[in-house]
C-alpha cells in the first residue's frame, strides 16, 4: 500500500505505508484518516530536500524493530549502535544536518532524530568553547568578568 506525502514546497513523494509509518505523526494521521488515504499528507514544516533524505533513511530502516517507549531511547541506558550506512548518511554539511534534525523532530522519526542528535553531540563533544565558536561562527559575547564567574562555577573534574 502506498502513501503520498507532500512537502512544504509542494513536491509529492509516494512511499510504502511501512516506510511512512516510521514517522509517528504520519502513522497517527493514517489511523485518523483511513478513508482519505488517496489524498497527499501535507508536511508543512519539511522541505522537499529534507523529506527525500528522511524517506531515504526510513526506507533503509524499514525492517528495524519499532520502539514505542521513550525510555528505550535513553542513550545513557542503551546506546544505539551506528552502522556504516548511518555513518555515511550523516556525512552532510552542518546546515543540512540541522534541517534533517528539524524534519525528524516535526515528523517524529525517532531513530533519525536520535541519529541527528548524536551527530550534533559528537561534533560538540571534543571541542573547546573557542573551537565551537569558530566552527559555528558564534560571537563571544561574554565580558571577562562574566567568563571568570562561569569558570568559577564550573570547577568540574579537576581531580
Amino acid at each position: 500500500m502506498k502513501v503520498t506525502l507532500e512537502s512544504s514546497d509542494g513536491q509529492v513523494f509516494t512511499v510504502d505505508k511501512e516506510v511512512a509509518e516510521l514517522s509517528v505523526i504520519i502513522k497517527e494521521m493514517l489511523v485518523i484518516e483511513q478513508a482519505n488515504q488517496d489524498h497527499p499528507i501535507p508536511l508543512l514544516n519539511v522541505g522537499a530536500v529534507e523529506l527525500a533524505k528522511v524517506i531515504e533513511y526510513c526506507e533503509h530502516h524499514r525492517n528495524d524493530p519499532t520502539i514505542d517507549d521513550d525510555e528505550d531511547y535513553d542513550s545513557r541506558k542503551k546506546p544505539i549502535e551506528m552502522d556504516d550506512w548511518d555513518k555515511q548518511f550523516t556525512i552532510v554539511n552542518k546546515e543540512m544536518m540541522f534541517e534533517l534534525i528539524l524534519a525528524a523532530n516535526s515528523m517524529q522519526v525517532k531513530p533519525l532524530l536520535h541519529l541527528g542528535c548524536r551527530y550534533a553531540a559528537d561534533i560538540v563533544k571534543r571541542m573547546s568553547p573557542t573551537e565551537i565558536r569558530d566552527l559555528f561562527q558564534i560571537d563571544d559575547d561574554f565580558t571577562p568578568e562574566e567568563q571568570d564567574k562561569i569558570e568559577w562555577e564550573k570547577q568540574w573534574t579537576k581531580l
Partner: peptide, 16 residues
C-alpha cells in the same frame, strides 16, 4: 543529554 555533565558545563562558556 548525550554529553557528560562536565562537557555540558563546558559548553556554557561558548556564548550567552
Amino acid at each position: 543529554s548525550l554529553l557528560p555533565l562536565s562537557k555540558v558545563t563546558g559548553l556554557s562558556l561558548v556564548s550567552k
